[in-house]
Nucleic acid binder design. Sequence first.
DNA 1: GCCACGATGAAAACTTCTTCTCAACTTGCT
DNA 2: AGCAAGTTGAGAAGAAGTTTTCATCGTGGC
Lengths: 121, 121
Amino acid sequence: MERSTRQRRAIREVFLEVGRPLSPQEVLELAKRKVPSLGLATVYRTLKGLVEEGFLTPVALPGEPPRYEPAGRAHHHHFLCRLCGRVYELLGCDLALTHLPPGFQAEGHEVTVFGRCPECA
Amino acid sequence: MERSTRQRRAIREVFLEVGRPLSPQEVLELAKRKVPSLGLATVYRTLKGLVEEGFLTPVALPGEPPRYEPAGRAHHHHFLCRLCGRVYELLGCDLALTHLPPGFQAEGHEVTVFGRCPECA
DNA sequence: GCCACGATGAAAACTTCTTCTCAACTTGCT
DNA sequence: AGCAAGTTGAGAAGAAGTTTTCATCGTGGC
């Protein structure tokens, strides 16, 4: 049976509180404030579980290790700060998929904007 | 001094011939047709050198190891085939960078379209 | 053609990220 | 409270990609 432990509650809460995609390391750092003994292995195990149960989805970014964000949100893209490495959600999508050469079938797309976040600007 | 060897010539030629971004593994396979003894270490060393001298640029894609393509091309984006894993260049860019929340400064962006390439469709 | 020195290839080592192992600890049912 | 079983944390191990090592080979200047 799946148990509700301090660790798992802390990790869930962190995602609801910060409102941006997090890497396993970031999850560890933020959730450690709630459960100081927390270990990285538990973070990975919990992230895996939360993805399977549909609470989180992985976010892949160019040249970056995966982040995770709450699942079920509307189509959107991401902003990666080049200085602090934090990722933010961008609402909306301005991409018009024209220009596809003949024979190519698009099934989806990813847009990543790079730059400086408000804290680093 | 930088020497012109069979291996380096072969790797350069491969990029000019295939016209799409290549991973180190793909470079190895394609250049081996010209120089069968070619080893992966040489591919990595040569790619590094070709990037430094400005002939190639790295291409980062979400959740994928880097590819390399000839440098100096106009702004463009990429198509990743989910079946064969090959990457293609897409000409043009339809992205309008509105919707940036206040305080965020954009410096660049990446667009990746996922789907099936003509050979896999 | 000779030869110094850069380049090569195979394997080992390294990095970074992720998963596994296992003894100790918690949770939740009774 | 007592206990069975799931969970945790630390470190070891694993996976994937890249770099280094080193003996040997090849290039290019003389």
